[in-house]
Design a protein around this nucleic acid. Structure first.
Lengths: 233, 233
DNA sequence: AAATGCAAATTTGCATGCAATATAGCTCCT
DNA sequence: AGGAGCTATATTGCATGCAAATTTGCATTT
């Protein structure tokens, strides 16, 4: 693992509160994996991380187990943890699940979303459009992801939110590539306007179909952009 | 926790292999929680379990973290783990997800299932029918669960199988109650025949609708049978 | 030079100990 | 009697130590 990358981050960890250390480490590591700072297939060494993070191996290993459960790490007994390497098929599989979950979410969201929640999503949509116009890809992507999560959350199904969030994180890096193409990016923004509109008008089936098409289009581009970037082991 | 129940089980644990202890403990605990041997809302004491299982706290605590991730345990920092208490709404939410996941699975299963897999499911179906005729409720239930999992597995989407299995386990106890009513039980067996038939004929949309109706009917009975057995906290 | 075998060094799995926190039990007060 | 406050006990969070397993490095052989 490239040790240089960690220098800046290690400071934040000082004095994490007792009882939350393993959870914080989990979130911290999840972020690193999800954005690709720790690349797929890389072995994650316990000692290196404990030194960087200033914690002992116990909470770190607890974090490993959690991330294994989330499908982000693979732990071979006696031989350490490695970041899971996803094939394009894996990503497609996860996307299929996400689309299915959004279908469920869409139908419930139009029933249960409060006007306040819809307005919050509308605000996010406006900020996302801003980011698009300023060509701030990262910020755009972040808000984009949050909008989708918020629509799911609006369904007020806790388990749904949990599963969606987890599966979404697993393939986050790949979805990012879905907005590299500028023409696609512009169309995605337009699609989001339609999505928001369908939510406002509480048209469940329409919302569902819009989301489905939105994801499929995004992945189609992402796939091209990535061009099978990682071989299966 | 009723300590008597554990006596018989503690022996099995002797000599669990190094490198698998926390995983075995996880599976072991999951079973106990999933079938209700450790009742919902009950605090799980680390010391008691380590003594019963003959292991140290480290692998046990790793198991706790995994089960928390699966939504089976709730860990409050400094205040221990308790078995999650599900409200009827929680169960309904999970069921909604399961139905959605089976919809995805159904469409893929009819595309990807090999004849061998279908025949395995057919065999399970036959054995399930046998269990029904012998009034062996537990065995029936077990095979029933396995059939649904196998249909999902036939879709050959690893993440789907993983998520389905996890969500299914979370509400297993409640689904069991769905077969208490004998008239319902008989109809469920008939529905399974239709489900198998649709799979054999590879009629995706039909399979999807049959599964959906099957679950809804089962839950309707289960709900009546349970009559809101657990209050939300 | 590549492959094989072996020993040293690293790394993991797990048990244990200590400090921090929560819980239970007690006393005292109203 | 019931509750507030305090003390003792139990329990959790985390660091650390040791043994087992794996990986690494090197010498030897083919």
């Amino acid at each position: 693992m490239d040790e240089g990358k960690w220098q800046a981050l290690s400071k934040e960890v000082e004095g994490w509160p007792r009882g939350q250390r393993s959870n914080f480490v989990t979130n911290f590591l999840r972020d690193l994996i999800v954005v690709g700072d720790i690349p797929p297939g890389e072995r994650v060494n316990e000692r290196v991380l404990t030194e960087r993070l200033g914690i002992s191996r116990t909470p770190l290993r607890e974090a490993f187990k959690i991330l294994e459960g989330e499908g982000l790490l693979s732990i071979r007994p006696n031989a350490g943890a490695t970041v899971v390497r996803l094939s394009p098929e894996d990503v497609e599989d996860a996307l299929e699940i996400l689309i299915g979950l959004e279908s469920i979410g869409a139908e419930r969201a139009v029933e249960r979303a409060t006007p306040e929640i819809i307005e919050e999503i509308a605000e996010l949509d406006a900020r996302m459009r801003e980011a698009f116009e300023c060509r701030e890809l990262m910020e755009y992507f972040r808000i984009n992801q949050e909008i989708h999560q918020r629509i799911i959350d609006a369904a007020q199904n806790e388990a749904l939110s949990r599963v969606y969030s987890s599966e979404s994180a697993r393939i986050r890096r790949f979805r990012f590539a879905g907005n590299r193409d500028h023409a696609r990016w512009a169309r995605a923004v337009a699609e989001h306007a339609q999505i928001l509109d369908a939510l406002r008008r509480r048209e469940g089936p329409l919302l569902r179909e819009l989301l489905r098409a939105h994801h499929r289009a995004g992945w189609k581009i992402a796939r091209k952009a990535l061009e099978l970037p990682e071989k299966s082991p």
